[in-house]
Design a protein around this nucleic acid. Sequence first.
DNA 1: TTGTACGCGTTATCAG
DNA 2: CTGATAACGCGTACAA
Lengths: 328, 328
Amino acid sequence: MATIKDVARQAGVSVATVSRVLNSAGYVHEDTRKKVEDAILALNYSPNEVARSLYKRKSKLIGLLIPDITNPYFPQVARGVEDEMRENDYRIIIGNSDENEQKELDYLQTFTQNNVVGVITLTNNPDTNTYTSFSLPVVFLDRTSHDKPSVYADGRQGGRLAAEAIIAGGSKEVTIMQGPAHVKPAQDRYQGAVEALEEAGMDYHVIQTSTFSFHNVDVLAKNLFDTYPSTDGVIASNDLAAIAVIHEAVKRGRRVPDDVQIVGFDDIPISGLLSPALSTIRQPAYEMGRAAARLLIHLIDNKHNMENYIQFPVEYIERNTTRKVARN
Amino acid sequence: MATIKDVARQAGVSVATVSRVLNSAGYVHEDTRKKVEDAILALNYSPNEVARSLYKRKSKLIGLLIPDITNPYFPQVARGVEDEMRENDYRIIIGNSDENEQKELDYLQTFTQNNVVGVITLTNNPDTNTYTSFSLPVVFLDRTSHDKPSVYADGRQGGRLAAEAIIAGGSKEVTIMQGPAHVKPAQDRYQGAVEALEEAGMDYHVIQTSTFSFHNVDVLAKNLFDTYPSTDGVIASNDLAAIAVIHEAVKRGRRVPDDVQIVGFDDIPISGLLSPALSTIRQPAYEMGRAAARLLIHLIDNKHNMENYIQFPVEYIERNTTRKVARN
DNA sequence: TTGTACGCGTTATCAG
DNA sequence: CTGATAACGCGTACAA
């Protein structure tokens, strides 16, 4: 790797001059600039970001902490973050926390050790000391905090919409899957669903779910139908769960949506391709990722002209796991 | 952030000594070690990786270049890479190339600019100048190269297995989806399928597909049935395509697998949860990611005691989109 | 308009 | 066993 010194020598100038043309700072004669640029090309030089970062005490790196990239919802948001960051010349270090506080801490430390200029985190513990005493700008994505910059979807409204869809479709014995207790947005959805159901004067069952991963959703779905075999409407905690529920329902010979309606949450990309295609509440994951990235960049640049709490609306996507109803 | 100097001052020793205890290098008296450790704790010090990296000209970072994290196959391999790397104290910078050579180059540059010690890449262009003249250890994942360290699955065999499954299930008019021309493993699968079909003396159609992304698989599937409406067996280029094919088939009132058999490729996590669950050729994506990481670490450590070409076997997973046949 | 010299936080060498 | 000190590659006063 060529260094700035090599370029300087090749161009017959000092390193300071090279640095100047590199950063288009200060004055530099047109001719010398040309010489330097030629040298750069000739040597295929590109500046060492590490040295730069050491000197400036900040890099062009940001940290992204997600629960588990393997969960189909997260790649969308990760991609949104990445795209926006890339357009602004930032790169990302990524870590999977598995919702494990130790891993979370480890990664946060890695981030600071590498001079990242900010982090975007999808955490269940926004209010722990970890974050409150964190010295860099942090944007909380998906899992909100009151007084800190955050980007999230209107989970409560999402829960309502889901319940309303199920109700409109005529289900009489609804079961709500109440996502993991420690996952805030899951509880919001649950809240919203409960509210709508109660306002409609409907009875409902609740199934507690402890995880959002692939491994357990199938047993969860079994569980659901074992416990409430005659349920005819399921408000799933997310699309993954919903898919498992469809699977289990079909396996038990129950027709979807004729015998059981099912509505998911997230609208992961696969949902529209299922058979039957999943009716669900859409969160704009990709856009949320982008928004979080934009917000973080603003914070990094110390621009405080941006709203710190960005709530995204949520939308009911009617597909084929709910019964069509006439709309007015 | 406390620096090594702060620690030295606090402990009443020189930075050299602190460095020694940090790296457990050289001799340091038990008592002084204690003092230093106390100081470290007191100041909540952790070494600046950037400075370290500058001096040693290498970091604890590796670069991971994938086509698109949004495609459900890749998170698995990314996760495998991450887990293995993490266990070895490496962290990863991730980039989505979108199979775009410019982006690929950009990221490769970022990687070197940040002193990564190696890269794992899923690229279609392993033999371009980009890589042949790359100065760091590189492991090619999934998309192979002859003479360079690589980890891949036996796509050809996979294609055969897929075809054999379809044949065994009794399909008479098979259609093969031939993945993107520039994606080597897709062509391998195609090869294998063709071979098996021809050996069995069967006729078949071919549908050319140009991408692996979510956006186009549905029109692809439409296309397939528009062109070959009476096809009764589809060998999909991957699970995503297969899912779209199921969707389209069901939409057209064709029963799966009674009227059409379908077999996928990859075995992405969702495949087993579909209804009907997808019969597919399994590639151990997560393990492949891990293997690539291990291989890269070996290369970094200059251990040449490891096989440089790691081929993973592939496996037919019979689920419900193929007809059950008696096995001997 | 250009060059010299210092510092960013570490590690390694070498003298003590 | 310990402490100065020179690098690592870059950016920026400050001087010229």
